[in-house]
Amino acid sequence: MPGGIGVTRNEQDDSRRLQTAQALVIAGLILYVPANVLPVMTMTVVGDVEPLTVLGGVQELYDSGLWPIAGVVFLASIIVPFCKLACLSWLLLMHGSPLWRRQRGALRRIVHIVGSWSMVDVFLLSILAAVGQLGVLSSVQAEPGGLFFAAVLVCTLFASESYNSHMIWRTREGVAA
């Protein structure tokens, strides 16, 4: 908790937080498109070059019969970022409204906790990229999609940090009754 709560409830600080969160969510929504369309990595297996998008990586796992793992990756790297962006957008659109405050607070908490699981794909990319140096026959090369994907995560992380739970309970006058 920041110091001096209740002493100086700075409205300028509030609107700055709101604007930061809005800008980050909009940026996240825009970046979400290239993050999913562009390949995240190129896997070369015995001379066979294969660019993989996030969804392609899931598909590959599914095809090899490992559907529980495919399911986890699908949830963590496709569903979670999308839901996080959708939920944050909704929370920001509802800002200042007296409706469903408790539910919005609970949703924000869930989004904050679950959101970090999308890092699975970024960590995976890092582990696979380490193989990149290992000769010509098999290699893994990171591609721009990974950059966009990481950017989406950073945007949503800081957006939910910026639009903290106190913001839900604020009205134009300061604190809701």
């Binding site: 490992l66 793992i69 970090s116 098999s138």
Partner: peptide, 23 residues
């Protein structure tokens, strides 16, 4: 919220599965 080692642990499992296809 930045201590994401549990997430890293899951990523290693996925990585092992993927690398198994390569070597």
């Amino acid at each position: 919220s930045w201590n994401l080692v549990p997430v890293y642990a899951v990523a290693t499992v996925v990585a092992v599965v993927k690398l198994d296809m390569l070597g």
